[in-house]
């Protein structure tokens, strides 16, 4: 177990290095550079050339990349070209907010999805199951920004129950209750698509598991239906579900970008989007590295969970 974890963690290095090279190249393949974006369409060439030199953009690409990676090796992600502030602090501060949002959304979608899936499976083809199928179709097809705005109009503008945007009220807020109030709409918006995916998968695997011989045996020996479903069948159906939850965690981290933008949530997603528009290479690199790192860690956690769920799986 220990050796397995150590080896997996060692793989992190090459993965993150690969991610940084790709992000670096993609940002440089897109037309336009930070100096151009900062100065806008109407700048004169002298200002542009001077700014390029100041920002080190006159250096060849590989020199720019090696300079950056040299700083990263010393734990310095550099300064944002655009904001002039250190990238590491900026990204970590924003990442906390993203973690709160995606964590909550993951919690909601896992719990909601599994419950919904089990209920649908045990009452297959009932009215409830059909409603859940329609709701799933709806949830999976609605774009996040549309759903977010609809929820905002209903619950903030019309009903006045929940705040429309931000993470805390600028005044009189700051506590857990304030955070939760601000969290409801974005978390539900972000979770909507994942809930339905997890629910549909849970339903399918549960239906399969409930048809197995050992379930019939359990029923035959007189176990209560709840015991059969929640204890015997669910644990065996969990492996594919855990896999899809792991995938959803990655999806949620990525999907948070839109949700954060709609609800002015101060997360790393909005920061990276602004960074991309400004061609702010250090900032985008920092943000993407943090997201990539958390995605790799989530996958590691999922792999570890497999073995816990099914003792037949061995760490290799």
């Amino acid at each position: 177990m220990g050796r397995f974890l150590a080896r997996r963690l060692l793989h992190l290095g090459p993965v993150l290095l690969g991610v940084s090279v790709i992000v670096f190249l993609v940002l440089h393949l897109a037309p336009g550079d930070p100096a151009e974006v900062m100065l806008g369409a109407n700048a004169n060439k002298e200002d542009l050339d001077r700014l390029r030199v100041q920002l080190g953009l006159d250096q060849p690409l590989h020199v720019q990349y090696l300079t950056w990676i040299g700083h990263v090796a010393r734990g310095d992600l550099g300064r944002s070209i655009w904001m002039k502030r250190p990238v590491l602090g900026e990204v970590l501060e924003r990442f906390k907010a993203t973690l709160v949002l995606t964590g909550t959304a993951l919690f909601l979608s896992t719990l909601g999805g599994i419950t919904l899936g089990i209920v649908s499976a045990t009452r297959a083809n009932s009215l409830l199951d059909r409603c859940s199928a329609v709701a799933s179709l709806f949830g999976a097809s609605m774009p996040v920004f549309w759903l977010g705005i609809v929820l905002m109009v209903i619950f903030s503008l019309w009903l006045g129950w929940l705040p429309a945007s931000g993470m805390y009220a600028p005044y009189g807020g700051g506590g857990l209750r304030d955070l939760l109030a601000h969290l409801v709409l974005p978390a539900v918006t972000l979770a909507a698509a994942s809930i339905t995916i997890i629910a549909r998968l849970t339903r399918a695997t549960m239906l399969e598991t409930l048809g197995q011989d050992y379930v019939r045996t359990a029923r035959a020996k007189g176990l209560g239906e709840r015991m059969v479903v929640w204890r015997h069948a669910l644990k065996n159906a969990l492996i594919p579900i855990v896999t899809v939850v792991g995938v959803q965690a990655g999806y949620l981290l990525g999907g948070a970008v839109l949700t954060e933008t709609v609800f002015a949530w101060p997360g790393v997603g909005t920061l990276v989007v602004q960074g991309i528009l400004a061609r702010d290479v250090p900032l985008v690199q920092g943000g993407v590295l943090v997201i990539a790192l958390s995605f790799v860690l989530v996958n590691l956690a999922v792999d570890t969970l497999y073995a816990w769920l099914d003792p037949r799986i061995k760490f290799q």
Partner: peptide
Amino acid sequence: IGRLVSLAFLLPLALVLGGGAATAQP
């Protein structure tokens, strides 16, 4: 688990709705 699920959904909602949404600035 069922009870836990409903609690997990209702607790934050109760906390939130009990509070009212908008906080006026000073």
